[in-house]
Computed example of a mutant assay.
Amino acid sequence: MTHDVAVVGAGVMGCSTALHLARGGMKVALLDRGAICREASGVNAGTLTMQMTRAALIPYALRAHEMWLRMPEWCDGGDVLATACPGLSVAFTDREAAMLEERATARRAAGAPIELVTPARAREIEPGLSDRIIAAGHCPVDGFTSAYLTGRAFRPALLRAGVDLSEGRAVRGIDRGTGGFTLDTAAGPLHARRVVLAGGVWLEEMAAWLGLRLPVKVLVNQLVVTERVAPVMRTVLGVASGLLSLKQYANGTVLIGGGWQGIGDRRRGGLAVRAENFQGNVRLAAFTIPALKQARVVRSWLGLEAETADALPAIGPIPGVPDAWIIGSVHSGYTSGPYFGKLLAQTVLGQPPDLPLFPIDRLLAPAAQAQEDA
């Protein structure tokens, strides 16, 4: 059997791409070496924030924010418990205040409704906030999901759309022939007329299958969750330095993130929490929301995040390889993930995408370096 398209990587971007391709009339195979959305897409902080999104991606993030909130409508009832709430980014130092102003200006110009507010106004929005802040940015369009539900939300919709979902089926390489592509998988070859690489931190290795050198940086982010506590916050909260993200779920637990790095790599995954970074992360959280000083930590875990050289997405056709596309590897990619997948699906289906893609020509290493690395 030959599929119209094979999507390699079943994270949020791969799932969205596959779903929209199937609904567009294509016979789609979706493959992942593990379970659906159980790598980065299922272990991140689930933040849907404009204030942590680069200005160039604000138009995409705004559309994706709406998709997350309306997910049960377009994903056959799939639900990640998306919650809309205000967002605050705060500053404790003059340097952070300057960063806030610069970033708010750029993101506001891109369409995000961010305004700078006084510390007093920030504490009206978030009463539990520290009295040590000197400035804050406020965005009414913010929110979060329960990221671990992402795969559970996508799976029924994918199956009902006719997607051939293969979990636990690692792809080891791709051969290009006259009739399309043959994927070398752990369960035997799979044939497809087109291929989409959606492997996140593994896109560097996947691109090499097709002769390209696409450098991808890997972040090993630590996350922490507390026990259930009485309500201590009602916003998505960050610090201008980028070292903190906070939100409290309906069950009372508080998720603490901010990109503090753990021990691990692309090949082995997340290996261990880095103790000094764990301490720094929770101390900053308790400094920002003082009531958290009384909360006990339940557990900490690690999630891999991919990032290109310019922190913008790799989304578009693969140069020199007709009928091959790539998607992924963008900082804070979960926020915009479902919309990016929709855009790429439009392109593969021969439709003009609603917003421009991010072709990877700008990111590729010279051919000579690719040959040396091979």
Results as ranks from 00 to 15, higher is better:
residue 65 H to I: 09
residue 20 H to K: 08
residue 207 A to H: 06
residue 57 L to D: 07
residue 208 A to V: 09
residue 357 L to S: 05
residue 364 L to Y: 00
residue 251 N to G: 09
residue 21 L to Q: 09
residue 123 R to H: 04
residue 51 Q to A: 11
residue 45 A to P: 10
residue 365 A to E: 15
residue 227 E to Y: 04
residue 200 G to D: 06
residue 153 A to I: 08
residue 65 H to C: 11
residue 169 R to W: 12
residue 79 D to N: 15
residue 117 V to Q: 01
residue 174 I to A: 11
residue 8 V to R: 10
residue 84 A to T: 13
residue 221 N to E: 14
residue 81 L to M: 15
residue 156 P to Q: 09
residue 149 L to K: 12
residue 293 K to W: 15
residue 143 G to M: 02
residue 160 R to A: 11
residue 315 I to D: 07
residue 83 T to Y: 08
residue 71 M to S: 10
residue 140 P to V: 12
residue 79 D to H: 04
residue 327 I to S: 02
residue 366 P to L: 06
residue 48 L to V: 13
residue 296 R to K: 08
residue 351 Q to T: 09
residue 22 A to M: 00
residue 275 A to R: 15
residue 343 L to I: 08
residue 21 L to M: 10
residue 177 G to K: 05
residue 314 A to D: 00
residue 276 E to I: 09
residue 3 H to T: 08
residue 283 R to H: 10
residue 131 D to T: 15
residue 247 K to D: 05
residue 213 R to H: 15
residue 102 E to F: 12
residue 175 D to G: 10
residue 264 G to Y: 01
residue 246 L to R: 10
residue 22 A to F: 05
residue 336 S to M: 15
residue 316 G to R: 06
residue 80 V to N: 10
residue 178 T to K: 14
residue 301 W to T: 05
residue 11 G to C: 05
residue 258 G to P: 07
residue 372 E to A: 14
residue 174 I to P: 04
residue 136 A to P: 03
residue 201 V to Q: 02
residue 228 R to Y: 01
residue 370 A to R: 13
residue 17 T to D: 07
residue 110 A to S: 09
residue 158 L to V: 02
residue 232 V to I: 09
residue 22 A to Q: 03
residue 229 V to P: 00
residue 28 V to I: 08
residue 178 T to D: 14
residue 66 E to I: 07
residue 318 I to N: 03
residue 273 V to G: 06
residue 243 L to A: 13
residue 246 L to I: 13
residue 347 T to F: 09
residue 105 T to L: 06
residue 309 A to L: 13
residue 216 V to A: 05
residue 206 M to E: 11
residue 118 T to D: 04
residue 309 A to K: 01
residue 137 G to T: 13
residue 257 G to S: 14
residue 91 A to I: 04
residue 343 L to F: 06
residue 23 R to D: 07
residue 178 T to S: 15
residue 262 G to F: 00
residue 276 E to S: 15
residue 160 R to G: 05
residue 308 T to M: 11
residue 230 A to S: 13
residue 27 K to M: 08
residue 54 R to M: 15
residue 268 R to P: 03
residue 362 R to S: 11
residue 10 A to H: 08
residue 327 I to G: 04
residue 94 D to I: 06
residue 210 L to F: 05
residue 351 Q to Y: 06
residue 266 R to W: 01
residue 155 R to D: 04
residue 20 H to E: 06
residue 360 I to V: 15
residue 90 V to G: 09
residue 200 G to E: 04
residue 128 G to A: 13
residue 146 S to Y: 11
residue 272 A to R: 14
residue 224 V to Y: 08
residue 95 R to C: 08
residue 100 L to R: 01
residue 371 Q to W: 15
residue 41 S to I: 10
residue 67 M to W: 12
residue 304 L to W: 02
residue 344 L to A: 04
residue 358 F to N: 00
residue 87 G to P: 03
